[in-house]
Simulated scan of single mutants.
Amino acid sequence: MSTANLIRLVALAMIWGTSFMLMRIASPVFGPFLTTFGRASLGALAIYLFARSRGIEFEWKKNSKVYLIIGLGNTAVPFSLFAWSALHVPSAYMATMNSLAPIFTAVFGFIMLGEGLSWTRIGAFMMGLFGVAVLVGIGPIDVTPWVIAGVLAGMGAAVCYGFAATYTRMYAKEIPALATATGSQFAAALALLPFAAPSIPHAFSHGTAQALLAVGILGVVCTGIAYAMFFQLISTEGASKAVTVTFLIPATASIWAAIFLGEAITHGIVIGIAIVLCATAISLGLIKIPGLSRKAA
């Protein structure tokens, strides 16, 4: 990887790492749906302006169904789940759940594309779940039903990402990546509007400058600018290298949250994150385990 792209990778991890902290700030004020609607709307506008500057054609009518399904699976549902999770669990927990996305992508590759699952990937899946259990069990907060629900919501978001990634491979191969990113963000914003609308009066009366700034950064920087950076990495370095940003996000999320929200970084967090990231690396083939590469299904 070139030095310039390595810098982009680290910058992207730092940007996406802030998103969990920002949701912890915005969601209690605006609620999960309005927070996500604001993020998707601002992100859509930012990506649209960037894509138009590159001369991208969107073919809205032809690609509307693809945009909608990817928008729901990659933005509307997972962003809402994380925004709700932010009400109950620390940023490090959410970032760790996010790291499970490549593992669930492999599972959906098996379900939707008929790709074989090796014993290595099955083991990685089980290891990832064990890492989550360790994180929750010895993490810095008490295990309550709401904490468990918040963790499950984060895992649900990772499941959505896995589905969306596989669906994109199946049906969006002929659509420019930036067009897919833009169209899906607009579709997500439209889908979220009915759920976000009831919270708008509350936002006007109880919104704070800090929460508004958090939503603005989530939309323009963490979604719009970050997506543009990510697709540029994919185009120059390939998807397999670009996806390694996954390994940096839990650390950056934990650091940002510790600095600005005072969230503790404990041994439980470090151990849980390490186990999940090892599982993800195994699933991506970055760590080889001799004798376990044969197909299980």
Rank of each mutant, 00 (worst) to 15 (best):
T35G: 11
I217E: 01
V243I: 15
P102K: 10
T3R: 13
A177E: 06
A264R: 14
S41M: 12
V134P: 06
A179W: 06
T168K: 10
S80Q: 09
L212W: 15
G216W: 09
V134G: 11
W146D: 13
L152Y: 05
A149D: 01
S2I: 02
A124D: 02
I56K: 01
F33G: 03
V143F: 13
I56F: 03
G71N: 11
Q210R: 14
A191P: 08
P176W: 04
F37A: 10
Y161V: 06
G55N: 09
G238D: 08
F104D: 02
Y48A: 11
L113Q: 13
A172L: 04
S184W: 10
M1G: 13
L100T: 05
P201D: 10
V134Q: 04
I269T: 15
L193E: 02
I148Q: 03
I249T: 15
K62T: 10
L72R: 05
I289W: 08
V151Y: 09
L193R: 06
S184I: 10
M23I: 11
S53C: 00
G268W: 10
L277M: 13
Y161F: 15
F82P: 01
F204Q: 03
M127C: 14
I122H: 04
K61P: 00
W84E: 07
W16D: 04
P32Q: 01
R169S: 14
Y48R: 00
C278Y: 00
F247D: 04
P290G: 05
I271L: 15
L213Y: 02
G272V: 09
K241G: 00
A4M: 10
I7C: 07
W84F: 14
A226N: 06
A211E: 09
M126G: 14
K65I: 15
